[in-house]
Amino acid sequence: MNRTTLDLWVGFFVAIGIAALLFLALKVGNLSAGSFANNYAVEASFDNIGGLKPRAPVKSAGVVVGRVASIDFDPQSYRAKVELAIDSRYAFPSDTIATILTSGLLGEQYVGLEAGGDEKMLKAGDTIRITQSAVVLEKLISQFLFDKAAEAPAAK
């Protein structure tokens, strides 16, 4: 084998290897859409975060606008402190409502942001004051049963 064909093969090998890496990065992973280079951190505290995990998406109107950076327990208020990293392309009013929602019946949980009407925008380090906790299925069921039990004598 002379050198030129060998070089050609090695070039071909390196090229398809890099193409495979690019395929993994762009098509399999979310390099193009999901990881934001520039973002700002906003805090929100919840009574109950359910099954929310770090790196869960933050969505507004169904569009991914950020990720959950970290989740901590605040021993002073006994609430969950969630840090959200939001893409700096998107600014939200300071009275934005953060809700923990579930995609589908059994899907993963994410933070939904509902923009308010304030003139002032959220800055890095701000706290979202109005939050709504995750819906815990057991609580819903027990509430439903209590309601039924309370209704039963009245119906008689």
């Binding site: 098509k27 399999v28 992973g29 979310n30 859409a33 999901g34 990881s35 998406p57």
Partner: peptide, 19 residues
């Protein structure tokens, strides 16, 4: 198939660690 894959696979966490 593709959109759920892209939502779950993180470039830095999954792919770069694999490399």
């Amino acid at each position: 198939f593709w959109s759920q894959m892209q939502a779950a696979v993180d470039f830095r966490y999954d792919i770069l660690n694999g490399v």
